[in-house]
Nucleic acid binder design. Structure first.
Lengths: 223, 223
DNA sequence: CCTATCACTCGTACTAAGTACGAATGATCA
DNA sequence: TGATCATTCGTACTTAGTACGAGTGATAGG
């Protein structure tokens, strides 16, 4: 049970947050306790409190680090590509840390990395020539979609194409085909088919939204 | 502190879940403890365990009841209107119970009402004449957007138009205008303006997505 | 009418987890 | 060398979920 990793480096809030993310990735967010984290760091619970104000503060730190993982696309990319890149990166990060998705939005105090993330998204939209009101819409819509998608993806049983098909099969068997005909049809005739990938809807959705935004902007300049 | 509501009716899982939702609405999800719930129901903690297997099971019940609140649109409505109606209803429910959004997606065991909700959404899409693969995309995209939007909305400081402007003002003051120019510009020149409403992006986003889906369906090409 | 059953109620207490308090330890600098 | 201060951590308090088993009241069969 105890892992007693020997600590060689000095404790810092950043290092603690990093270790906490490791633990959450490995054992799930519900297994992330102060005691387990201390153990993982080769120290004792109360020691952590000299670097972090409490568990809530720790969660805030973790969230900010998650945002830090989302990379800003290079500025020389065309507007549309840049947005796609950033959204993909965001999704990848959230897939890597599925436990974080409900957390991200339940924290009320925004950290610097969160602000940076938003800022760079807005800057890219600005480069696309969107007027302010449309920019606000674009921002809200894209963010909602990306996080919403990640939210669904995070709770999907298994995201590997095959593993998911298996699960879907079980579900379909448990379903009452009369009570839920569409659900069963979708599952059996589509989801369980080889080559199905839930993730492909991400690209499609993103494309639809970007098309709509460009149409709303009109024939503006691109760069 | 103790509220000691006199209980007149027999305890049932449904009634317990309803009371739990009331409590969560009023005091927040973190204040929903078994003890507080028992108090609210005029009974004792262990009594609840004869009707509900545990707190996890209680949360499952609550989630299913939340889904039950989302109303299916009348079948005679045109396809597009029906989708909009359902999505609006979903959003309204989630705004009414903001604490539930992270919960909804973190539960892995789907209840009957959740299945019903999905089924009716799919049925409406089917009425729209979407072929199966496009239907799957439409479903994933719409759900992601609606829940993602609700997720953001749930964590927004205040959704009343004015209250939010106040908060935005504070935030803008705290911001470093040099570090986050776009964020500040958006906040000051748009969000803080009278008449701004975050929620309006919902309609816009929904419209864009539906336009895109119709376009994809239209001439016969699909994705 | 009496009593056995059973669903329901609840008092007690155990466990896990966050964290307050203050002592011990060790490094830095005058 | 000794004082200061950051860090570490042992102990213990608190809250919350819930296991265990005793009480209690309504109902059904004799």
């Amino acid at each position: 049970m105890s892992e007693q990793v020997v600590r060689k480096v000095r404790l810092t809030p950043e290092r603690i947050a990093t270790a906490a993310i490791e633990l959450a990735d490995r054992d799930g967010i519900e297994a992330l306790t102060i005691r387990a984290l201390a153990d993982h760091l080769g120290t004792k619970p109360m020691t952590l409190y000299h670097h972090v104000a409490g568990k809530e503060a720790l969660l805030d730190l973790m969230v900010d680090r998650i945002f830090a993982e989302m990379e800003a696309p290079p500025e020389d990319l065309p507007w549309r590509e840049a947005i796609i890149r950033r959204c993909q990166s965001t999704r990848e990060v959230l897939v890597r840390h599925p436990w974080s998705v409900p957390l991200l939005e339940s924290r009320s105090t925004p950290g610097p990395e969160l602000l940076r993330h938003h800022e760079s998204m807005l800057a890219t939209l600005d480069r696309g020539g969107l007027p302010l009101p449309l920019m606000a819409h674009a921002y809200a819509i894209l963010d909602s979609f990306v996080f919403g998608f990640a939210l669904e993806e995070a709770t999907l049983p298994a995201q590997g194409g095959e593993g998911m098909a298996d699960v879907a099969e079980e579900i379909a068997a448990a379903f009452d085909a009369e009570a839920y005909p569409q659900l069963v049809r979708l599952t059996v005739d589509h989801v369980m088919q080889p080559g199905y990938s839930f993730g492909s809807s991400f690209e499609v959705g993103l494309g639809i939204i970007l098309d709509g935004l460009e149409a709303a902007r009109g024939p503006g300049a691109d760069a």
